[in-house]
Design a protein around this nucleic acid. Structure first.
Length: 470
RNA sequence: GGUCCCAUCGUCUAGUGGUCUAGGAUAUCGGCCUCUCACGCCGAAGACACGGGUUCGAGUCCCGUUGGGACUGCCA
């Protein structure tokens, strides 16, 4: 007998488009994507936009953009829950018919009062089940509630946390249809995961308390629950839930700050997951190595410094061609739209070890791409002094004579010149560096000359001599 | 308050009862390299939350304490 071709693993990522894709969501998406890819399964994208007031199209676009940037491609979707209301209604009707749900006429005000009263007495703030056995029908302002069991317990074997058991008495009857006749999250998510054949639900562990109630819903709907894997949350440096006040938290912000997607992926993957002592992983390695059994249980503080370090390494590793493409928008952003590409190509290999982000890389590249470098006033004051005019003059003469193409010859001549002047290398190199780049730091002085070429070196030295003389 | 989850260097983590005087990464500090700034290399400091058990033996298993977190919505 041959088995049907139904994929054995189907994962999904269901963001609600009420904000940009955050680090936590991105990691959840990554783990789902990796799990599907590792097992040769399918990855479904679904927008949970049942809350029509808070969901916005611009967030849908922004989430899609972030996913694409990270390279997390989906095999199905994006589905939109807002387009599946008929299906949810059908499931709710079925539940009503089967006696697994009931109409509730309690007003939000009344509910709030009972809740507060319960809290005041130090009791559990749960729905009291007033309408549970009332046999009510639909009415203006009414909702439908799921009729959950009052006794026993619901248990599941979480793939990262192990067995988790929940007393049914701890769960009240949750609303599945709102008074505006839209379905709630719990109902929609379960119906969708059934319809879409989801086999593994990998999500943040803030969903742990939702899981037993959803399992009950699966059973009421006559479906087998999927496997669950609850991954620990990502925290800010103060160990509280990561939020805006911790700095950049949305994926596109990192992109705009000059981070490479593979650095993001690497950093995110290592948060809660590990493979021995290995720190650097390519996408292919992650797909090959990733599995849920190596996911940790405890929450993790996001380490921005480590991400930056990863980013620096990835910038160093990137091909010249890609770097060119990556850095161009960042150059444009600082007003450098037209420039001599060969100069940038020559400069880039010397710049990458010095840049931790693409923003910095563009900054490092600037002196070589501008007609005249922007002179740092402090550097000018310190190094382009009258007494250095002669030094610059001597360097100019040397460059005129030996050129800048033969680095060996250039260095030899430069050192000879220092000796001749009776000056240490640094005393000659620093004024030259400022003359050529406008700054006190740069790649090696000979590399700088080679990048600029003889003509520009001579021109800049002359300009600097004038500055020093004046 | 209740329910549930979690607990190794500052941070991310390795560690699945003996090989742990606890390993790696990052951050910090020191050194080397050196024309500056980086990169790179070498080195230092730095952790098993606490208390009970189980065991010949516990970072590893069990219980408790403490601490942290999540949930407790007609948000998802």
């Amino acid at each position: 007998m041959t088995q049907t071709a139904a994929p054995k693993v189907v994962t999904r990522f269901p963001p609600s488009p009420t904000g940009a894709l955050h680090l936590g969501g991105a990691r959840t998406a990554l783990f789902n994507w990796l799990y599907a890819r590792h097992h040769g399964g399918r990855f479904v994208l679904r927008m949970e936009d049942t809350d029509r007031k808070r969901s916005k199209d611009e967030y849908v676009d922004s989430i899609l953009e972030a996913m694409a940037w990270l390279g997390l491609d989906h095999d199905e979707g994006p589905y939109y829950q807002s387009q599946r209301f008929d299906r949810y209604r059908q499931a709710i009707d079925q539940l009503l018919e089967d006696g697994r749900a009931y109409w509730c006429h309690c007003s939000p005000e009344k509910l709030k009062q009972t809740r507060e009263a319960a809290m005041a007495q130090g009791k559990k703030a749960m729905y009291d089940g007033a309408c549970r056995e009332a046999g009510l029908g639909p009415a203006e302002g009414a909702v439908v509630r799921f009729k959950g069991p009052r006794t026993g317990s619901t248990e599941f074997n979480d793939m990262v946390k192990g067995v988790i058991s929940w007393a049914n008495s701890e769960m009240d009857d949750l609303v599945i249809l709102r008074s505006d006749s839209s379905p709630t999250y719990h109902l929609a998510v379960v119906v969708d995961d059934i319809d879409m054949g989801v086999t593994h639900v990998i999500r943040g562990d803030d969903h742990v308390p939702n899981t037993p109630r959803q399992i009950l819903l699966y059973e009421a709907l006559g479906a087998t629950p999927p496997r669950f894997a609850h991954i620990p949350m990502i925290l800010g440096p103060d160990k509280s839930k990561l939020s805006k006040r911790h700095g950049a938290t949305s994926v596109v912000e990192f992109r705009d700050q000059g981070y490479l997607p593979e650095a993001m992926i690497n950093a995110l993957a290592r948060l809660g997951w590990s493979h021995g002592d290995q720190e650097i992983f390519s996408i292919d390695e992650l797909i090959e190595l990733f599995d849920l059994d190596a996911v940790g249980k405890s929450p993790a503080v996001f380490d921005f410094e480590k991400l930056t370090r990863h980013n620096q390494r990835y910038i160093q590793k990137a091909s010249l061609e890609r770097l060119l493409e990556l850095v161009t928008p960042f150059l444009a952003r600082r007003g450098i739209k037209q420039f001599d590409q060969p100069t940038l190509v020559a400069a880039l290999p010397h710049l990458t070890p010095r840049a931790t982000t693409l923003v910095e890389l563009a900054d490092w590249a600037e002196p070589y791409l501008l007609e005249q470098p922007v002179m740092d006033p402090k550097a000018v004051k310190k190094f382009l002094k009258p007494q250095n005019q002669a030094v610059l003059q001597a360097v100019r003469g040397m460059v005129e004579r030996v050129g800048v193409t033969d680095l060996g010859a250039l260095e030899e001549a430069f050192r000879a010149l220092c000796e001749e002047l009776g000056l240490k290398m640094g005393k000659v190199a620093q004024p030259t560096r400022v003359a050529l780049t406008g700054r006190t730091f740069s790649p090696g002085i000979f590399e700088v000359m080679a990048i600029l070429g003889k003509d520009r070196v001579l021109k800049r030295l002359e300009a600097a001599m004038e500055t020093a003389g004046g």
